Computed example of a mutant assay.
Amino acid sequence: MLIGRVLSIVLAGALLAGCGTASQEAPRQAAPTGAFPVTIKNAYGETVIKQKPQRVVTLGLGDIAVSNALGANIVGSVKNYTGKPLPYLRTKLDETVYAIDPDALNIEKIAAYRPDVILALTCSGLDQAKYNALSKIAPVVTYEKELYSSPMDQDALTIGRALGDEAGARKLVDDANASIAKVKSELPRLAGKTYLYGQARGDVLPIVVGKDNMSTKFMASLGLRVPDAFASVQTSSELAPGTIGLSYETADQLDTADALFMTFAGPDDQARFESNPLTRDLKVIKEGRYQATTIEAAQLLQAPDVVGVDYLLNQLKPTLAKIGS
């Protein structure tokens, strides 16, 4: 992601770390739907939620979207890097709710919300020390292994269990799967087509090709794949997990893709990418198979969540239709 913090969100944090599609089954843990107490294991320990939460704090964008769609009473949340509410939020939240800095979690401010549970499955600022501090305030529900490493259906079901509404979460998962299936049905020629997704950042073009990246898995759920020339290249975490770094001088490799999606660290980067002859004259761009993604779409490609699937598909569909209809 990019535009200032976009960088840290989408690319730096993992323009694409690992994430999954909505088709993977989430592991079941303890208690049946709606029953408490609920025990949920995570990367930092084990969380026990004794009763249905009435006051919820959310520390990641996916946490906001899913818990909001499930009707949770969100009393405090991280600010979106765009300064605006998520465009796909089901129910509008009061602006005063967005008061937590995602880059510098304020433990005292979070405590002041008097939460019953803290949702942090997509929180980029969590570590063991912060987890321990937050756990003294309320049960903390976070990722099972590492940030952006679990499929979006698993995250949704985990949030559903924490909130006592796994059935509602299951419906969100089913709806997301249905939306993906609908696009595949409408664009039958997508299957097997190739794409590339990356960012223009100064002189460097980090391109996400790692098979375990969230964007890679989401695109695979639509039948898309990275070009053969990139399928087995050695990726690195130096620029962002699962990426390779191209330069403008090697940008001709982008023409191996049927479709190209790019995000930008800032407006100057976009202007440079779209005006530089080394990229401007690429066939994939001249033929209209290139798309500059919005920040919101880049955020969702970084960390897909079941509530944002329709929005993301609608954002990508104009370009997908050019190669898949």
Rank of each mutant, 00 (worst) to 15 (best):
M1W: 02
L7D: 00
S8M: 01
V10Y: 03
A12Q: 02
C19W: 05
G20F: 14
A22E: 07
Q24V: 12
E25D: 13
A30V: 05
A31L: 12
P32G: 10
P32K: 12
T33F: 10
A35K: 15
F36M: 11
P37G: 08
P37D: 15
I40A: 06
N42D: 11
Y44F: 15
G45Q: 06
T47P: 07
V48S: 10
I49R: 03
Q51C: 03
Q51P: 01
V56E: 06
L61M: 09
D63H: 06
I64P: 01
V66D: 05
A69E: 13
L70E: 09
G71Q: 10
V75T: 14
V75W: 07
G76Y: 08
S77Q: 00
K79V: 03
G83V: 02
P85S: 04
L86D: 02
P87V: 10
P87Y: 07
Y88H: 12
D94T: 04
Y98K: 06
L105C: 13
K109S: 06
K109V: 03
A111V: 04
A111S: 14
A111P: 00
R114P: 02
D116E: 10
I118D: 11
A120V: 03
D127W: 03
K130M: 13
N132S: 14
K136W: 09
K136C: 02
V141S: 01
K145F: 11
P151I: 01
D153I: 00
Q154E: 14
D155R: 04
A156E: 09
G160N: 00
D174C: 03
D174Q: 14
D174F: 01
D175P: 04
A176V: 06
I180D: 04
V183L: 15
K184R: 15
S185V: 11
L190I: 13
T194V: 10
T194D: 12
L196M: 13
Y197N: 00
G198C: 05
G202R: 03
P206F: 10
K211Q: 08
D212R: 10
N213L: 04
M214K: 10
M219N: 06
L222S: 06
R225L: 05
T235S: 04
T235L: 05
E238N: 07
G242A: 12
L246G: 02
T250Q: 15
A251K: 00
D252L: 13
D252I: 11
L254H: 11
D255T: 12
A259R: 02
A265L: 00
G266R: 07
P267L: 12
D268E: 14
A271S: 15
A271F: 06
P277Q: 11
L278Q: 14
G288T: 09
A292R: 03
I295W: 00
E296M: 07
A298C: 02
Q299A: 12
L300F: 13
A303W: 02
V307S: 08
Y311A: 06
L312I: 09
L313W: 07
N314W: 01
K317R: 15
P318H: 11
P318I: 02
I323G: 01
G324W: 00
